[in-house]
């Protein structure tokens, strides 16, 4: 799932300072689940912006909408009527959602209210962590299902660096050293031979940016 986080209010205010009437668009998929851009967050941000404008002696009129998946052309189509009534759109979708609306409604400026952060999973309620770096060349078969590319701060493939510290990472002592986790998992499974192997550098051609995949029809 895509994990995003709302931009600081000040940044959002500056983006839309010139407008009197905007449409806030949420997305019902990933960003709803990570509490960043669902219907609820749209309502709160709209209210907060109205109050903020009023605080500064102005007035902002808002319309609100939340589409099922903002990254799908067909699904943003339903915004048509509302977009006609406003000067600009503030999207609470991920970057893909922002661009889908911007591409479909080219006449209207579309602004991002979120910073799209990473592919993540919930660790507990309200906490999401990055476990997959979308590197395009999955390495998990060699590491006991723990990704060193993204969970090691340096993305090392051949074992821990000298900064590993009692199972934690030197960069952030709150975070586990991925290579200590990998070692423990492989040891438990009797597969430490995998860790002793040499792995050559990553192939950055695995995803040629910008990425594009055409599936085979079944």
């Amino acid at each position: 799932m895509i994990i995003a986080e709302r931009k600081p209010l000040e940044d959002i205010k500056q983006m839309i300072a010139q407008y009197k009437k905007i449409l806030l668009v949420g997305c019902g998929t990933c960003v709803t689940v990570c509490w960043a851009g669902g219907e609820k967050e749209v309502g709160i941000l709209a209210s907060q912006l109205r109050l903020a404008f009023r605080r500064d002696g102005g007035e902002l009129e808002t319309l609100e909408a939340t589409v099922e998946r903002q990254c799908e052309k067909e699904m943003v189509e339903e915004l048509k009527d509302k977009i006609q009534q406003v000067e600009a759109v503030l999207s609470l979708g991920c970057g893909a959602g922002v661009q889908t609306i911007a591409d479909r409604f080219e006449e209207t400026p579309v602004y991002p209210a979120l910073n799209t952060k990473f592919v993540g999973m919930p660790e507990r309620e309200g906490l999401w962590i990055e476990n997959c770096g979308a590197c395009g060349d999955c390495f998990l078969d060699r590491t006991g299902g723990i990704c060193p590319i993204v969970r090691c701060a340096k993305g090392l493939l051949n074992g821990p660096c000298g900064g590993t510290n009692k199972g934690k990472c030197e960069v952030d002592p709150e975070k586990d050293c991925a290579w200590t986790l990998i070692y423990r998992r492989l040891e438990k499974q009797g597969r430490l031979d995998l860790m002793r192997k040499y792995y050559p550098p990553r192939n950055f051609q695995a995803v040629v940016r910008p990425g594009k995949i055409e599936a085979q029809r079944v």
């Binding site: 600081p8 000040e10 709160i44 109050l51 903020a52």
Partner: peptide, 8 residues
């Protein structure tokens, strides 16, 4: 927190 962000 939301109000503080607005400056209230």
């Amino acid at each position: 927190a939301l109000l503080r962000e607005i400056g209230v």
